[in-house]
Amino acid sequence: MAEEAVFDFIHMEAVSYVFQGGEKVSEDEAVSKLEHMGFATGYRLVERLTRESGRYKDELDIMKYICKDLWVTVYKKQIDNLRTNHQGVYVLHDNRFRLLTHMANGKQYLQYAPRYLAFTCGLVRGCLANLGVTCVVTAEVTHLPACKFQIQVQRG
């Protein structure tokens, strides 16, 4: 079954939908819609994925779950590198992020790349919210198709 292609197509249409209307669309509003769709998807998805697994022992354990199992399910590969300052900031490096591989490498379309990361930021935030971690997720691209996601856990 070729369901990963279907996900890619739906995602592309979601991105093009929120930006339809061209110049008039506010970038912030469009990105926030994508983020919201990602959140709703991640929140529900993780509930189904983790139904049979045991409790994660700590925050780092949850992050490892995101980097390995979740990433493989959604993006067909693991996160290449996970770094943390042990104070609630986690940085996930993906050297070949699936949703960016449809775009040309290099700098030409760099300015459009964040549009293709917003859904995933929401997805990660939704997954973590359902696992009991409240956080802010942001993403950054320096060189297509590599990118990094930063998770800042909110405490208190």
């Binding site: 369901e3 279907v6 919201h36 769709m37 709703a40 529900r44 998805l45 994925l49 139904r51 959604v74």
Partner: peptide, 25 residues
């Protein structure tokens, strides 16, 4: 079903589509 990764990635698309329809509404 939960242990079958194929089935679960099918659910990814189902859930993503659901979020999209909710946004359109």
């Amino acid at each position: 079903r939960a242990n079958d990764p194929k089935k679960v990635s099918g659910e990814l698309f189902t859930l993503t589509y659901g979020s999209l329809v909710a946004q359109l509404l």
